[in-house]
């Protein structure tokens, strides 16, 4: 509701001339800019697909690495307590600053982009899985002992389903953060992708295209987020509550 009002106000403001058209263009024009990218095969090939693939790959790695690290950490109390103070400050690290290092070491390319996305995406996954493991009820341990469910079977039958809400929340946050990492890296330096589209359009003062690309980024991240949230609501059993990290 509020969003609709804001968008309408922006449209009116731009049209009437309250807002400088050299800074912000009206929302309808933004949509047109987005359509000019989406509506062309070339736009898909050089703008959307490169970003989307990098985001997808980065998300997969984030989820896998985050989950495995959290499971490994939780196995030893000593290692866990040694890492705890650092895990809390992980979100404070300006990961983007590492992207230039990756470029210097690995060169410009998908690897550097994905690496940046993974480093950002792995943090929420790690914290979510750790919180999920902590919130597993103690009786799972008793059940595991009574029915002798051990090792991999215990992981797949008790541990992972027990923290399914945390896993899905982790996936949701992780995909959003991976996307931010990839787009930011593309904004800094990249020959392709949505971030690059924003950057190049801004440099050539093509505001329509710039806002179009921004809109696409927001739509992409927003739809991923909402999509996973819907899946989460659909697949989780009623009463299988979400834990808050």
């Amino acid at each position: 509701m509020l969003l609709v009002a804001a968008v309408a106000a922006l449209e009116v403001g731009c049209r009437v001339g309250l807002i400088d058209p050299q800074i912000v263009v009206p929302p309808t024009q933004m949509v047109r800019g987005a359509w000019e990218i989406v509506g062309r095969g070339e736009g898909w090939r050089t703008v959307i697909l490169p970003s989307a693939t990098a985001i997808l790959v980065a998300t997969c790695f984030s989820v896998l690495i985050g989950t495995c690290c959290a499971l490994a950490l939780s196995r030893s109390r000593m290692i866990r307590s040694a890492c705890e103070p650092y895990i809390v400050v992980l979100p404070a690290i300006p990961v983007f600053a590492l992207y230039p290092v990756f470029i210097a070491v690995l060169g410009q390319g998908v690897v550097s982009l994905v690496l940046t996305g993974v480093l950002l995406g792995v943090v929420p996954m790690l914290t979510q899985v750790l919180a999920g493991l902590d919130s597993l009820p103690a009786y799972l341990d008793k059940l595991a002992r009574v029915y002798e469910v051990r090792g991999l079977s215990r992981l797949t039958r008790l541990t992972l389903p027990g923290m399914a809400p945390a896993l899905l929340t982790g996936l949701r946050l992780s995909s959003a953060y991976s996307a931010i990492g990839v787009i930011a890296a593309e904004l800094i330096l990249s020959p392709r992708g949505l971030g690059h589209a924003i950057h190049s359009a801004y440099e050539s003062f093509d505001l329509t295209r710039m806002y179009g690309a921004i809109l696409l980024v927001l739509a992409l991240i927003g739809s991923m987020y909402v999509g996973i949230a819907m899946v989460q609501r659909r697949v989780l059993a009623p009463g299988h509550m979400e834990v808050r990290a």
Binding site: Y139, K142, V146, Y147, S153, R157, L158, A237, G239, H240
Partner: peptide, 23 residues
């Protein structure tokens, strides 16, 4: 056990099947 040890993500049926699946 004394406490509720049903698994919230499994249906009644699959809760009862749990130990059989495990073995």
């Amino acid at each position: 056990f004394q406490e509720d040890t049903t698994l919230p993500w499994r249906t009644v049926y699959r809760n009862v099947a749990f130990p059989l699946e495990a073995s």
